[in-house]
Nucleic acid binder design. Structure first.
Lengths: 147, 147
DNA sequence: CTAGATGCAAACAGTTTGCGTCACT
DNA sequence: AGTGACGCAAACTGTTTGCATCTAG
């Protein structure tokens, strides 16, 4: 399972050209195995491909997310959103149109932590987001896939 | 329980001056009872206080979030973050320094939906984020409170 | 050969900041 | 009276886009 082979296969399955830049970006994200920002990825990738541009990194991260090769952490990135609903509740989020709907707490099994957290971590709240596509966006042309 | 009285009390408890702008912003967010963006709030507030500036809206939303009068939806707003971990897992997020750590799926009871979702909504995944402050940030000067 | 990918620079959206003036306490 | 809030404009960060050139298939 050489990474080279895997990457080409992955790209072919996603109908993406297997370019050098693309491969370096992808493998860099894998090597960072955390939750790196575009800037950090850019900095690392640059060491291998000094001529690469930040725009290429952004374009490819989006491409990877859309094709399911990578995942975006948290809500699909948009603007600040604020809420006044003080009751415990969760959110139904459309990853296409970014609409957010409240879900009553009763609709989801209560979340309980079974795991030891890092010492000193003070939990403030637990947020549950159900991500997907709403009916309108589901019927429109699908943008991202998954396999 | 007139809103006027409530608002002044709230502000006093948070050591905030109860200004007219602040009150209109706060009540506007309540009246929208959804997940409004700063721009939407600004547009609505402007109808009551035409001279208000967008900066004031932003400043006060941040103030409200810090003092616990409002809540920010989703992760504390920063830059795009990407991950390659394909296993089901969840996140431990520090709301101060924005650090993200993976939590193994086994550490949290499996989330199951008991509630009927809007028809046509296609669930893609469920994201669970444990929000709080990490040990380092907990020991530093606390920024936001809650009562 | 051709569709699509890259690199650059410029544009853009959302958000924050500095500063002089004004208002709440 | 003094601290902090407001309004304005300018700065800034993160991200996207247009376009000419290049490259994988």
């Amino acid at each position: 399972m050489s990474p080279e082979l895997n990457f080409r296969d992955l790209c072919h399955r996603c109908n993406l050209a297997a370019t050098h830049q693309r491969q370096v970006i992808y493998e860099t994200v894998l090597s960072l195995h955390g939750h790196p920002s575009p800037e950090l990825i850019y900095a690392k990738v640059r060491k291998k491909v000094p001529s690469i541009s930040l725009a290429t990194v952004y374009k490819n991260l989006r491409t990877f997310i859309e094709s399911g090769m990578l995942r975006e952490v948290g809500l699909p990135h948009g603007s600040l959103r604020v809420e006044s609903n003080q009751k415990i509740h969760h959110h139904l989020v459309c990853v296409e149109c970014k609409s957010i709907t409240d879900l009553d707490e009763a609709g989801i099994d209560p979340v309980r932590l079974r795991q030891k957290l890092p010492p000193g971590f003070q939990v403030r709240r637990i947020s549950v987001d159900v991500l997907g596509t709403c009916s309108q966006c589901s019927s429109r042309a699908p943008r991202s896939s998954r396999f």
